[in-house]
């Protein structure tokens, strides 16, 4: 096996990631303003920005879903038991011993099994909950005249708020995880320039050198 820097986060994926980060940050900031946790922006401004960011995020997600399926990237998120115990053992034990992270990124598998599972749950569970509750909230004008509308709105708002809190916890842990294994900067760099250290087979290297020379750099 050969270690090389390979372009594993393409331009769209990086754009998607950072746009999503910015929008989620704005949504959290304005959402918590709406919830009354802070008053740094007026309610009217908070609602306006929250709605715009939500619509942009939905648009982004539509593109991202399309991208996942047309490029086959979705396969990176297929859950696997292979190596997951080792990774979990590393985070709960080995890391304190100064052990090396057991996972080696592959060209066809850029997340470690625990990471892939976390992202998959985020995409398949938490995001849809926020999407659906947020859209129902946004479409209040369609069902507002129903006598029970206020009760439903309460339920929807609580689901939406709960999901937002869960996402906040995710963000906190997500950022902390950047400090594990490699250094913070080494974790962050691939999300900017797209290149991460990957163990390649000789065939993979040969393929990349011949057909995708701009996607490979030496370590």
């Amino acid at each position: 096996m050969i270690s090389r820097f390979v372009l594993i986060y393409t331009r769209f994926e990086r754009f998607w990631h950072w746009m999503q980060m910015a929008l989620i940050f704005m949504l959290m900031f304005t959402g918590f303003a709406i919830h009354g946790i802070h008053h740094w922006v007026s309610f009217s401004t908070a609602v306006t920005l929250h709605t715009i960011c939500a619509l942009l995020l939905i648009l982004l997600w539509i593109f991202a879903i399309f991208w996942h399926f047309t490029t086959g990237t979705w396969k990176h998120y297929i859950p696997t038991r292979n190596g997951i115990i080792k990774v979990a053992r590393f985070y709960f034990y080995g890391i304190f011993k100064g052990e090396r992270h057991p996972y080696r990124k592959a060209y066809w598998r850029k997340h470690n099994p625990l990471q892939a599972l976390a992202y998959l749950s985020l995409k398949l569970m938490l995001f849809p909950v926020i999407w659906v509750s947020g859209l129902l909230y946004l479409l209040y004008f369609v069902w507002r005249d129903h006598p029970q509308a206020a009760d439903w709105l309460y339920g929807i708002a609580m689901i939406h708020t709960g999901a937002a809190y869960a996402l906040l916890v995710f963000v906190v842990v997500h950022v902390y995880m950047l400090t594990t294994g490699h250094s913070f900067v080494e974790h962050l760099r691939p999300m900017f320039n797209g290149f991460d250290e990957i163990e390649l087979s000789a065939e993979e290297e040969a393929y990349l050198l011949r057909d995708q020379p701009s996607h490979i750099r030496s370590v």
Binding site: H35, A150, Y154, T161, Y165, A166, L168, V169, V172
Partner: peptide, 28 residues
């Protein structure tokens, strides 16, 4: 009889969120 964002919420949900955040921070 209304859900009024900014005024209303679920106290226990907010408490739970604080507990979750504190737990995450403590764990980290």
């Amino acid at each position: 009889g209304i859900y009024l964002p900014g005024r209303d919420g679920n106290h226990w949900l907010d408490v739970f969120a604080i507990v979750a955040l504190v737990s995450a921070a403590t764990g980290i």
